[in-house]
Amino acid sequence: MNKVLFFAALKEVIGEDSLQMDLNGKTVGEAKSILQDKFPALPLEVAMTAINEEFAFDEDIIKKEDSIAFIPPVSGG
C-alpha cells in the first residue's frame, strides 16, 4: 500500500490529510486520474507531486510502499 498525503486546500477537499491506496506500478499521472475520478473537485492539475519527499513528474513510476504527496501552489507575503 501507498500513503498518499494532501496539504492545505487539497486536504480540505479530501477531508483528511492522507489516504492509503495501492498505486504500485502506476505512474504519477495515472494516480492523479484515479484520485480525480474519486474526488472530482480535487485540483491536482495545479499541484506539485513528490514521491518519498522528492519532486516527481507525471511519468514517474510509483513503487510499493512509496509515499506520495500532493502540494498545492503556495503564495504569501
Rank of each mutant, 00 (worst) to 15 (best):
F57M: 06
E16N: 14
D37V: 09
P40A: 08
A8L: 01
N2I: 12
F55W: 12
E65N: 07
V28K: 07
V74I: 15
K3F: 12
F39I: 04
F70S: 04
T27E: 06
I71N: 11
G77Y: 09
D60Y: 00
K11I: 11
D60I: 01
G15Y: 10
S18H: 15
P73T: 11
F39E: 00
K64W: 09
F55P: 00
K11N: 13
M21H: 00
I61D: 02
E16P: 06
G15A: 08
L35Q: 04
K64E: 08
I61C: 01
D58T: 05
L19A: 09
N24Q: 05
E30M: 03
L5N: 14
M48E: 07
F39D: 00
V13K: 14
E30K: 12
I14H: 09
L5R: 10
V46L: 13
D66Q: 08
G29E: 02
E45R: 14
K3N: 12
G15T: 09
D58K: 06
P72F: 05
F6L: 04
I61Q: 02
E59K: 07
G25M: 10
L10F: 05
I71T: 13
E12G: 06
L5W: 12
K11S: 14
F6M: 03
P72K: 12
G29K: 05
K26D: 01
D37W: 01
K38V: 02
E45N: 15
I62W: 05
L10P: 08
T49W: 01
Q36P: 00
M1D: 05
A69Q: 04
M1C: 07
K63I: 01
D37M: 11
G25H: 04
A41Y: 07
K3H: 10
V28A: 01
G76H: 05
G29N: 08
Q20S: 13
V13N: 09
T49N: 10
F70Q: 01
M21K: 14
P40G: 06
F7M: 08
D37H: 10
F70T: 02
P72N: 13
V74M: 14
S67A: 13
S33G: 10
S18Q: 14
T49I: 14
F57K: 14
L23Y: 01
L23H: 07
